Computed example of a mutant assay.
Amino acid sequence: MGEFLNAAIRALIGFTILLLFTRLTGKKQLSQMTIFTYITGITLGSMIGEMVIHGGVEFMEEIEAMVLWGAFSFIVEYVGLKIPFMRVVLDSEPAIVIKHGEIQVKELRKMRLNMDDLTMLLREKDVFTIRDVWYAILEPHGELSIVKKAAKQSVLMEDIGLQPQDPSYLPGELITDGTLIRKNLLEFGKTEAWLIQELSKRGITSIKQVFYAELSEDDTLFIQKK
């Protein structure tokens, strides 16, 4: 029983430290993960796993090491925010891998990329031929930003003299699995009476009959019944 309690305490402490770390590092850890933040997260996770599974008499020392590791990570991130040079050292700089439609071979070699890697990154941006690309920039977190050649760019409405109105809100769900999302209803400036009236136009007598309902930015309602 004592061993089980000790394991539960170690797991709870490890979970708490990891949760605090992920919350304090913000969304960059997920959406803009650099090599540094990736290694930092992996190392901390490994340390916590070792503590939880193999915890022993050095329990307090292990906690201290994890707290210090997290603190060092925050300090380095803070320094990177304040000092541009350190930001370059930690996260590196964007690299132009296609310039004026020409592949920059030296940059590719510097980034340890081959042509298969480059074409794969282009396909992820729905570009299937290098001939369509005017500029391609490899960002520090590994994603590719591209500027297509003028002849290959999408036509904007303003290019053909149209001036559409910007949407008042983003599309959002009003009903999910028969449950009304009141928060979104208020956000869109709608009432439950309005929604019931709209449902009745589709022959629906109860919100419970609806699996999913979404209000689009053009004020139209998408409804799928159960």
Rank of each mutant, 00 (worst) to 15 (best):
G2S: 13
N6W: 12
A11N: 04
F15C: 09
L19A: 08
F21V: 01
L24F: 14
G26R: 07
K28W: 09
L30Y: 15
S31T: 13
T34R: 04
T34K: 06
T37S: 14
I42T: 03
T43A: 11
G45F: 09
M51S: 04
M51G: 02
M51L: 13
V52M: 15
V52R: 04
I53Q: 14
H54M: 10
G55S: 02
E58K: 14
F59A: 05
V67C: 07
W69D: 01
W69H: 10
F72M: 15
S73E: 05
S73I: 05
F74M: 13
F74T: 00
I75F: 15
E77H: 11
P84D: 06
F85E: 14
R87C: 09
V88D: 13
V88L: 11
L90H: 01
S92M: 10
E93I: 07
A95L: 14
A95V: 14
I96G: 02
V97T: 02
V97A: 03
H100M: 09
H100Q: 15
E102R: 14
I103Y: 06
V105P: 06
E107M: 11
E107C: 04
K110E: 12
M111C: 12
D116R: 15
D117N: 12
L118R: 01
M120S: 13
L121P: 02
R123D: 04
R123V: 00
R123A: 04
K125E: 15
F128P: 02
I130Y: 09
I130R: 09
D132R: 06
V133G: 01
Y135R: 05
I137Y: 06
L138C: 00
I146G: 03
K148F: 05
K152A: 13
S154W: 10
L162N: 05
Q163F: 12
Q165Y: 07
Q165L: 10
P171R: 02
E173Q: 11
L174I: 00
I175V: 06
T176W: 09
D177T: 02
G178I: 01
T179R: 15
T179V: 13
I181T: 03
I181Q: 13
I181N: 14
L195E: 03
I196W: 05
E198T: 00
E198S: 03
L199I: 02
L199S: 01
S200T: 07
S200G: 04
K201S: 09
G203L: 08
T205A: 12
A213Q: 04
D218L: 06
D219R: 11
D219H: 13
I223T: 03
Q224C: 09
K226I: 06
K226W: 12
